[in-house]
Computed example of a mutant assay.
Amino acid sequence: MTAPFISPADIVAATQTWLEKAVIGLNLCPFAKAPFVKEQIRYVVSQARTPEDLLKDLISELETLAEANPEQIETTLLIHPAVLLDFLDYNDFLDVADGALEDLDLDGQIQVASFHPDYQFAGTEVDDIENYTNRSPFPMLHLLREESVDKAVLSFPDADAIYEKNMETMRTLGHEGWRRLFSTHGKK
């Protein structure tokens, strides 16, 4: 059985809804709102079906972000809905992504953050609500400029506390609150 086709536009729309409702709406990342509102996020839907093809897309996007004006492209979401659907395979690929950064001499300039529909922090159970801070509608690699991350952290008092605040937010919200966040009311 094959998965139903979802257009790249629908994938981007679902990702933007997740950003708006969860990442920004729950303030999981206090630095996300500005590039979202200023439309400085580059959304790329990879057609890759193998990790090797995804690596090619990743290299291309790393080079694009490194060369782009931050006023135009602050950050990139490389969404890959047809590859690395298994979280453990995805997690292993993060080492490949770090290797690509080093090979391109972009280590220290760009970093890769990870989001996946089945994201699981070490030491947690699969269904622990805390994992939902990094659960996205599709597997994706978030490419961030190190300089932007450093500026954001300097401007935010007690940036180290964000992780703990996010865990508390998720525990307060709970699984039912998460479901309600994405439910569509009034749809016929």
Rank of each mutant, 00 (worst) to 15 (best):
V45I: 12
D98W: 09
V37P: 00
G108K: 10
L78G: 03
I73W: 10
L54I: 14
Q16G: 08
P139Q: 01
F87W: 05
S46N: 12
R49H: 15
M140S: 00
T2F: 01
R42T: 04
G25E: 08
A14I: 00
F36A: 00
E63V: 09
L106A: 02
A152W: 04
T64L: 09
A22S: 14
A68L: 14
S60K: 04
A100I: 08
Q40D: 10
N166F: 01
T15Q: 06
L101V: 07
D92Y: 01
N27P: 05
D107M: 07
A3G: 06
A159K: 02
L26C: 02
L94A: 12
Q40G: 03
L143G: 06
K38N: 15
N166V: 10
A14K: 09
V96G: 05
T169K: 11
N131Q: 10
H142P: 10
D86V: 13
K165H: 15
T75C: 04
K188E: 12
I11D: 00
N166Q: 08
G186Y: 09
E20G: 03
L26F: 01
H185M: 13
K188V: 05
K165C: 07
I162H: 04
D86L: 14
S155I: 00
H142W: 14
A113D: 07
I73G: 04
T64Y: 08
F156D: 06
I73D: 02
V37E: 13
E52M: 12
F121G: 06
V44R: 11
K151I: 04
P70M: 12
P8H: 04
F36V: 01
L54Q: 08
A22M: 13
N134Y: 00
D95Q: 12
L28V: 05
H185K: 13
D10L: 10
S114T: 05
L55R: 14
T17A: 15
T76R: 01
N69I: 05
E164P: 08
G108T: 13
A9G: 03
F87I: 02
D160M: 02
G108E: 05
Y163C: 01
N131L: 02
P157T: 14
L58R: 07
M170L: 15
P137D: 07
L173V: 00
L173Y: 05
M170Y: 03
Q47H: 09
E74I: 04
D92V: 06
G174V: 06
L26W: 00
E61W: 06
G25M: 05
I110E: 04
K56W: 08
H185T: 13
S114N: 07
C29I: 12
H116S: 05
F31R: 05
T124V: 11
L101S: 03
A152E: 13
E61V: 09
M170C: 08
G123D: 09
Y43C: 06
V37G: 07
L19Y: 10
D92F: 04
L78W: 08
L143V: 13
L181T: 03
L94Y: 06
Y43I: 07
V96C: 04
G123T: 08
A22V: 00
E71N: 09
M167A: 12
E67P: 00
L65H: 13
